[in-house]
């Protein structure tokens, strides 16, 4: 499906993957996450192979993918509970004193606050939450291990426009605080333009075009109405039309 594809992403960069349905955006993302193995070629993280680096990587699915029998906070702390003890060799967790549990508890609570989930909703079960709150939980869970790279596969596709805009802001806030590398797949051109440093358009199994986003940082809601935004939007839109098979 993907062939002769090369993409380099810098540290703390946000890259959007766009393209027609079935062009392999999600496949590429799953390969980066090592959920799929490329038949040939390599994926490296600052010179390390994916296997060595997988600790530093988090993945957000299109569905919130929460465990229904766990409360919001129990869901968020799940990644901390998983993995063999050797993996948790404090690379990501430099703690000064305090037990492991209280450290986890602090991290979980911090993240829940930063994604905007209040004390009352933290003890709820996923079925009692709205779609937006579930996605916030999913984001908090992805960040709880403090990954260096965050991969998102159409994370906001199932949400309405208002919620999508709010969660776009949230993602930017989280990025401003942590400056992590983010690679995300989206079908929404406006979202791609608003959130990214660069946009990679996939077609025929390759990166058909790589567009550098000229919008200044930090991003603000007003930019969505700017001329520059409109130009980028039509540039991306035309690019996708070019690589799309004729419908």
């Amino acid at each position: 499906m993907l062939d002769n594809l090369s993409l380099e992403v810098a540290e703390a960069e946000i890259v959007a993957l766009l393209g027609p349905s079935g062009c392999g955006k999600s496949t590429l993302l799953r390969m980066i996450a090592e959920l799929l193995k490329p038949t040939s070629g390599t994926i490296e993280f600052s010179g390390q192979s994916a296997e060595q680096a997988s600790t530093f990587l988090s993945y957000v699915f299109q569905d919130p993918t929460l465990l229904p029998w766990r409360t919001v906070e129990e869901n968020v702390r799940l990644p901390l509970e998983l993995g063999s003890p050797s993996r948790m060799d404090r690379k990501n967790f430099q703690t000064s004193g305090g037990s492991e549990n209280s450290d986890w508890e602090t991290r979980t609570q911090e993240l829940l606050s930063s994604v905007g989930l209040d004390a009352a909703s933290r003890r709820r079960y996923p079925r009692e939450l709205s779609g937006g709150m579930r996605m916030r939980t999913s984001l908090a869970r992805a960040l709880v291990t403090d990954p260096r790279i965050l991969l998102l596969d159409e994370p906001f596709a199932a949400l309405d426009d208002l919620l999508r805009t709010r969660l776009n802001e949230l993602l930017l806030d989280l990025w401003e605080q942590r400056k992590r590398t983010i690679v995300f797949v989206t079908h929404n051109i406006a979202e791609a333009v608003y959130l990214s440093h660069r946009m990679a358009l996939l077609g025929n199994g390759k990166i058909a075009r790589l567009i550098t986003n000229t919008l200044p940082w930090p991003r603000t809601q007003q930019m969505r109405a700017s001329a520059e935004f409109a130009t980028l939007y039509s540039q991306v839109s035309a690019g996708i039309a070019e690589v799309s098979p004729h419908a």
Binding site: Y59, T65, W69, E81, L82
Partner: peptide, 28 residues
């Protein structure tokens, strides 16, 4: 659910953890 299995795989969950924290609760 495949995504849940992927989530556990990505978190380097052990076979035992996948059984006790994912499969068994799911089977209740």
């Amino acid at each position: 659910d495949e995504n849940l299995k992927d989530l556990f795989r990505l978190s380097n969950a052990t076979r035992w953890q996948t059984l006790t924290k994912l499969r068994i609760p799911h089977a209740v």
